[in-house]
Amino acid sequence: MLNNFFLRNRLLIALLLCSTAFWWNPAAHAHRLLIMAWIQGDRLMVETAFGTGQIGANMTITVKDAVTGDVLLSGATDAQGLYEAVLPTTALDRRAPLLVQATDGAGHLAEQTIAADELPSRAAPSTAAPSPPKVADLPSIPDHPMDDANQLSPLLQQAIAEAVRQEIAPLRREILALSQRGPGIPEIVGGIGWIVGLAGLGTVLLRRRTKTSTPSL
């Protein structure tokens, strides 16, 4: 009866197996959480993504003093996988490297250390409101020459910075995913080779054990 069931449904089984074929993607390893953290002005920016380049939304972010382990900041990424916060004065005073950790609460953790020399100086503004990022070396417009980039209004600078940030967000995730090379054919074949080798070793050991135990019987 069991045999008949499978013979009758051979087509269904084949279809089901084929339907799972799209899951076979050696480059995809979504259970690997990736993190990219950087300093922008007086703010800490964090972006999380999965190995496939998918957005890491609602990841818990913890920022620690990498030397003492004290928690300086904590929060969660938004729906776009972004987290940003003004660096606390304690972090600027300590001048210690920052350990930025992201976790999904299900056993996946990603971390990155930001070196102390990347932190802005204590004199930098650290108000709660987002400060405009420094825009240096703006190209001059011949018809309307601008002697100083500061002539741009802070609001305009902020809008430009925000627009650029949004435009390059997918690129950042792609770079993040590409920087983490997933398992390829060599690793997969190599792993199966190790298993075959271990099975061979096990056979040798078991036969040797059988031979040594046989005479004593």
């Binding site: 899951w23 993607n25 995809a28 979504a30 259970h31 496939t52 890491g56 997969i188 199966i192």
Partner: peptide, 19 residues
């Protein structure tokens, strides 16, 4: 063991992530 070793590469899309 080989099946288990390879099984982790078969992903099931699930919302924003996958298992």
């Amino acid at each position: 063991a080989a099946v288990f070793f390879i099984g982790s590469l078969i992903h099931v899309p699930l919302g924003p992530s996958s298992v």
